[in-house]
Nucleic acid binder design. Structure first.
Length: 280
DNA sequence: CTCACATGTTAAG
DNA sequence: TTAACCTGTGAGC
């Protein structure tokens, strides 16, 4: 579930559902009880996402810092209240009882103040989903790095909010091999990647899915069955190891990179050739 | 049913 | 580099 678009979408849902009214805060699981008691029946002011970090804002400068990790979920549920299922670390209930939100499986759920929030934000690279993002900060780090672009795109200190799906897909869309060193990218390529991430991730916030195939490669356009798995979105290479590339038919490759599986098409994303060699 | 793996990060070894 | 966190899903038996 959680790349940056999930958290931005969630921030919007939480704000729409709870902002401007007192909220009942509890921790059915028991691991956030003291903090929940402090927030209980105070006003929820809003919610904001920075990369994959979420801050739920309550009165008196109190914030709940949430990170979903790999498996966490924060479900916003409209309708009558039901007993918590599983390990619900944080539950928000609207004062009219007509909606609630349950947090499960998160790696982080802390009560913090603005100072801690600022620390977390300061450690993050620019977030393509934020209008105030400065892509130059990411470019400066990428262009002077020997690390691979696949590694750099996943580094939240370089660029915030991109995860394993957007990494694989945006590199495919720009025909760049994930192992290519950051310092070999041209500015125009980075600019195109950034602009594409802004567009793709904004669409992800709108739909709640990661769809990255261009109109001519959709299941309808190609007369192929839609993707069937828990992600829902249509993609070019992510988790398609061994299957034919939608564009050239070559088998999609995979390899561990930065601790995660990276996916690419060996024909559409050829191994980088150095500038010296290009001159021949 | 059990098992492997997953859109992530941190901390221990 | 590996385990741990903690939940859900799909594949295989």
């Amino acid at each position: 579930m959680p790349e940056g678009h999930t958290l931005h979408r969630l921030a919007g849902h939480l704000a729409d559902t709870f902002a401007g009214r007192p909220v009942h805060v509890s921790s059915p699981q028991g691991r956030f009880v003291a903090e929940a008691a402090l927030l209980d029946r105070t006003e929820l002011l809003g919610a904001e996402a920075w990369g994959k970090h979420l801050f739920v804002e309550f009165a008196d400068e109190r914030l709940v810092h949430v990170h979903l990790g790999l498996i966490g979920k924060f479900d916003v549920v409209a309708g009558p209240l039901v007993p918590p299922v599983g390990q619900v670390r944080l539950r928000l209930v609207r004062d009219d009882l007509a909606a609630h939100a349950d947090l499960r499986g998160a790696t982080r759920c802390d009560l913090v103040g603005p100072r801690r929030r600022d620390e977390v934000v300061a450690a993050l690279g620019p977030d393509p989903l934020r209008a105030d993002a400065d892509p130059d900060r990411a470019w400066r780090r990428i262009v002077r790095s020997d690390r691979s672009i696949g590694d750099l795109l996943m580094d939240q200190a370089v660029l915030a909010g991109v995860g394993n799906v957007y990494r694989a897909e945006v590199l495919f869309r720009h025909r760049i091999h994930p192992l290519r060193p950051g310092r070999t990218l041209r500015r125009s390529q980075f600019d195109a990647i950034w602009a594409d991430l802004v567009e793709l991730m904004t669409e992800g916030v709108r739909t709640g899915r990661i769809d990255t195939v261009r109109p001519e490669h959709t299941p309808e356009a190609m007369g192929r069955p839609p993707r069937k798995d828990d992600h829902g979105g249509e993609v070019y290479v992510y988790r398609r190891t061994g299957m034919p590339c939608w564009i050239c038919g070559a088998g999609v490759r995979t390899e561990g990179l930065a601790g995660r599986n990276s996916f690419w098409c060996p024909r559409c994303q050829p191994v980088f050739r150095s500038r010296a060699r290009d001159r021949h």
